[in-house]
Design a protein around this nucleic acid. Structure first.
Lengths: 199, 199, 199, 199
DNA sequence: GATGAATGAGGGTTCATTCAT
DNA sequence: TATGAATGAACCCTCATTCAT
């Protein structure tokens, strides 16, 4: 009887938590809601997570790391900043479309929860942002992107813009074409980030 | 003894709520925290608001309307889309800098709260977004902005970008120059939105 | 400006209390309900009554005394036990029919409230009952009523029976003929209380 | 480990509620009083009852049904109206003497509570009364009881009389002989209900 | 490991009462 | 006297967490 390194039940609970937190929000959701959704007893959750907050923390950790890994892999396979940004975004679109509830939790709860797990969430988010900053800065240093703007500012801008785009898509129940809007967004940013001829 | 049209105490409670909700988040904040901050008894809050949720609602209502009015006034005083967007943003910077806690509550809680006051918050936010859409669409129809992107998408992008920018400024306790970053952001967007020569 | 010995406002409050207590019950009724019904401010009530409980107490006192006086007067004007009981009951019917809400409060709340104003309510009720006992005992000593039953028991029986009759009439919103039922009841009791021939 | 069909704890809570409600009255009693008396935590009560009011409701339901069953059984075992009424009453005396607190709650709170659970309490009480009405009407149709009085009125009379008798016995802390008084009462009623010779 | 009944601290809300006007 | 805004103690109920089975 092999046991996967990370228990099946733990994953079932995490998946249930995503669903429930997405539907009700972290604070309104009850631990027993998660338990019911996961098909386990309330107490079972505490065999895998120390507290309700830890459940949210575990959820962030596991998934943000996955996202970060994905983004990290992009830089290896693409040369230009433009193609990297394009790839990062289209990967993210795939993620949002295939796991909209997770995307919602990751973006919505990240903010409110900042209140009770500051350093933790900030770290994960910081790591994510730093990768974007690197892509931008690299593009600038190679003359692919304009240099008169702070890479950090650009990274935040793009993150905010795409985050808003995907979140509103999730919350509007997929009523419009996310890929198309994303392509338009990317075009605007890449055009706006083109090196000035005067430089 | 003159009495302001809207009760002093109501305003004191609203201001206290902003402070407390910003510091702890709506769900973690206790009504008695707000009462203490406002210097009133717990029960007094219920003379002005029907419930804790109604307090948050009242807070949105009053302030979002103010912001919307401000944005609305901008279009009358400025001609080009560029100057309108520039003005809207610099007005918003002034707001964020002078009332950072309110800005935080308005942006952070708007999301989480979407869960329990959906239509309400969505309406106010929708009204705000619509104004931006109009500015963009108007700029497009006058040939000032590129036409190959959806005005709605652009509005969302810009909102998301600037929202992220100001929120991260608020939460990082003002460690960097918001105005400067904002100017860079505006430049990137305006460059990215410039009509294509091929058009 | 003459002032009646017992203030008008005090009476207005008492009348309002009767109405409100009858409709909602003492515990569910709020002091502010009584104030609104009386057309006075909440605080005004406390100029005439020390507390909510005192309001109920005042209500009992004033009205029970009136009822007791009425019953007391009957014995003077009537000779036989039968005619006395008949008169007491028909007076009570008049009272119940003209002030059903007061009758309801006096009978319903008397019981529940026994819990918090024991000695007081018991005294008033005891005085009332004692009058009935006297009528019965007098009738027994004069050979008009059977002697093989305790006057106290008979008084309680009759009180309980007539109380139930009038209360159910009040609560059923006067759907049947109280006078008629009362006459039947009286007949049964008087027949049942007739001296045994063997005596 | 056997489990009784109806949870032990539920019954412990109900018994505690009887004791506490009898002592303080429903409105004055606190849920935590009941919990302490039952030896459980406050929250435990809500595992078995939806609310404080539901606790009172459950208490009525369970016990009134028991009483009604008892009364119902009497008619099968006795022939004459006289022996039926006699048996119903002596059963009730046994009940009142063995569970005086329950008797008190059932009769006292039934009235006040009518305010917030009208139809419910009325139904149970109505069912009880209807059984008495049947006994009376049956006695009348068989010529055992006088026919010139409404069976409904007689039932109410007797109920009111016996209710008052037992309640006052309960509240006077058993200072007198309930059985004896009850026998007297029954004699009076049966004599009063004897068919008229003229009929 | 798994369960879910039990716990009890905590918080939103009510409302009798007060008191400055 | 009269007012009614303000008070704050009290209480019902929720729900994260525990623990005996």
């Amino acid at each position: 009887m092999e046991r996967s390194r990370t228990s099946d039940k733990r994953n079932r609970i995490l998946r249930a938590a995503v669903k429930v937190f997405a539907a009700k929000g972290f604070y309104v959701a009850r631990v027993s809601d998660v338990a019911r959704e996961a098909g386990v007893a309330d107490g079972t959750i505490y065999l895998y997570f120390a507290s309700k907050g830890d459940l949210l923390r575990g959820l962030f950790e596991e998934n943000m790391e996955r996202l970060i890994e994905q983004v990290r892999g992009v830089s290896a396979k693409h040369d230009s900043a433009a193609s990297r940004l394009s790839q990062i975004w289209s990967d993210y679109v795939v993620f949002v479309q295939s796991e909209p509830e997770l995307a919602e939790v990751l973006t919505v709860e990240l903010r409110e929860s900042g209140k009770f797990m500051n350093e933790f969430a900030a770290d994960l988010f910081g790591a994510f942002l730093r990768l974007i900053v690197e892509v931008i800065a690299d593009g600038q240093s190679r003359g692919e992107l304009r240099r008169d703007v702070s890479a950090r500012t650009v990274a935040r801008l793009m993150f905010g813009a795409f985050d808003e785009l995907s979140l509103s898509w999730v919350m509007s129940k997929n009523k419009w074409d996310l890929e198309r809007s994303g392509k338009e967004a990317l075009t605007i940013f890449l055009d706006g980030l083109r090196p000035k001829t005067s430089e």
